[in-house]
Amino acid sequence: MKRTLLVSAVAIAGLAGMATAATLDDVRAKGFVQCGVSTGLVGFAAPDADGNWDGFDVAFCRAMAAAVLGDPSAVKFTPTTGKTRFTALASGEVDLLARNTTWTFSRDTDLKQTFVGVNYYDGQGFMTHASLGVSSAHELDGATICIQTGTTTELNLADFFRANSMSYEPVPIETNAEARQQYLSEACDVYTTDRSGLAATRASLENPDDHVVLPEIISKEPLGPLVRHGDDQWADIGRWVLNALITAEEKGITAANVVEMAAGTNDPEVNRLLGSEGDLGSMIGLNSDWAVHVISAGGNYGEIFERNIGSDTPIGLERGVNALWTDGGLIYSPPFR
């Protein structure tokens, strides 16, 4: 009985927390977007020497601030860990979470979050020493594998090896830094985590060519920004800011030419997006030139990708499945109409 009471007290308190006024009004009133990011993940979120945050996820926070307040620097970042991120969002400490979080059923429904889309399609992969001469994950029978405990990667790994009736010996590790040391000292033959993480780790090794990332991807990890359940307008803004970034790449709108194109083009969808035709902005509660601010903040989806994690950066990720649908990838935006 006492337990039920406590649980319902927590639930009521939680509801009270969620039933706050519209996030959009709150954000306008305080003049900045409070954005939950990672405490540090190569390419996705990291502070530089002056304390300015930068990265692929950070760029989305800045785009949101640009859309709502017209100023990409009107963001305050709250570093969150894997354990504190959802509570920080649910309790209203942050307005949105852009912290390479995998979109799963239970997080969407049970934890009462709303994922606004997918900004990076990741998947679990394997990295191994080139000297072992392994070219496929199906040759890993009997390998020792470094694996982060308590994550979905651990379960995916078990599933993959069972499905292929192979055996492996797990070496449990806590953090990426620890995994790196274990892997380098050859305490494990293979390191497995998300492929973006593998690429970043491989790039930081002394001789990246001595290590290969195997071609198999054994899980789906769609990473995306998320907001609280129950504020549809705010979720819509998040969703369409992301779609604006994607559509901008599709239509060739860049940070450099967005102002010029906002004056009017021959493409009606571009005109609707940038506000020179129609009135999409007011339907979502924003100014008509919201998308112009979004794109001038850090460029379109492709520009953000290339600058933070693309093939010219030390991390060197290929677009792969994260290419536009027109290039055979999965990145796709509904039309602006």
């Binding site: 990672s38 405490t39 540090g40 993940l41 190569v42 390419g43 996705f44 979120a45 990291a46 502070p47 530089d48 990265g55 709250t78 570093p79 969150t80 860990t81 354990k83 504190t84 920080a88 953090t175 830094a177 790196r180 040391q181 970043a200 780790t201 790039a203 930081s204 090794l205 950066t313 030390p314 991390i315």
Partner: peptide
């Protein structure tokens, strides 16, 4: 650092997240 405050140990993670310094432990 476990609750996301950037004390010296938490900051080492953030600094490693800079791709210029990734791999320094």
């Amino acid at each position: 650092s476990i609750i996301g405050l950037l004390d010296p140990v938490g900051l080492t993670t953030s600094i490693r997240a800079d791709s210029a310094w990734n791999g320094i432990v």
